[in-house]
């Protein structure tokens, strides 16, 4: 019998992608979050990752509307901290939920159709 083993190292994959989000390397899409309470925050992102991890972004790029053409999107009704959490989840598949952020995560994972996340937070 031929022996076969699959090498798996998802935790490294996860941290590497998280690093990518913060390093801004090869970024081709910007997410700008404006807030009255906090200062405006810009995230340098990657279309390939956004669209493969989120139905919302998938639709956004596929429809070729204004955002896809200009290369950025602006949110005014999202807390920068929540957006960072969501992006971190998109990139790394990990998200720490605590009583501070739970409610907001719940709301935005619903809004952007992160169903797995939504189920998890609802249980929390």
């Amino acid at each position: 019998m031929e022996s076969k083993k699959t090498f798996e190292n998802y935790s490294k994959l996860s941290t590497d992608f998280e690093d990518l989000l913060h390093s801004k390397n090869y970024s081709d899409f910007r997410i700008i979050v404006k807030s009255q309470l906090q200062e405006t925050k810009t995230f340098e992102c990657h279309r390939a990752i956004l669209s493969s991890r989120s139905d919302y972004f998938h639709g956004l790029f596929r429809s070729q509307m204004i955002e896809a053409q200009t290369g950025f999107i602006e949110f005014e009704d999202v807390m920068p901290q929540v957006m960072e959490n969501l992006l971190s989840y998109i990139y790394s598949g990990k998200l720490e939920i605590n009583s501070e952020n739970a409610v907001e995560i719940l709301v935005f994972s619903s809004r952007f159709c992160f169903h797995d996340l939504l189920d998890f937070v609802t249980d929390f």
């Binding site: 919302y56 429809s63 509307m65 204004i66 949110f75 009704d77």
Partner: peptide, 15 residues
């Protein structure tokens, strides 16, 4: 004529 529309605006409206 979709190219001048904002995806997020429409998505948010439906939401």
């Amino acid at each position: 004529n979709a190219s001048t529309l904002s995806f997020e605006e429409l998505y948010r409206s439906s939401y």
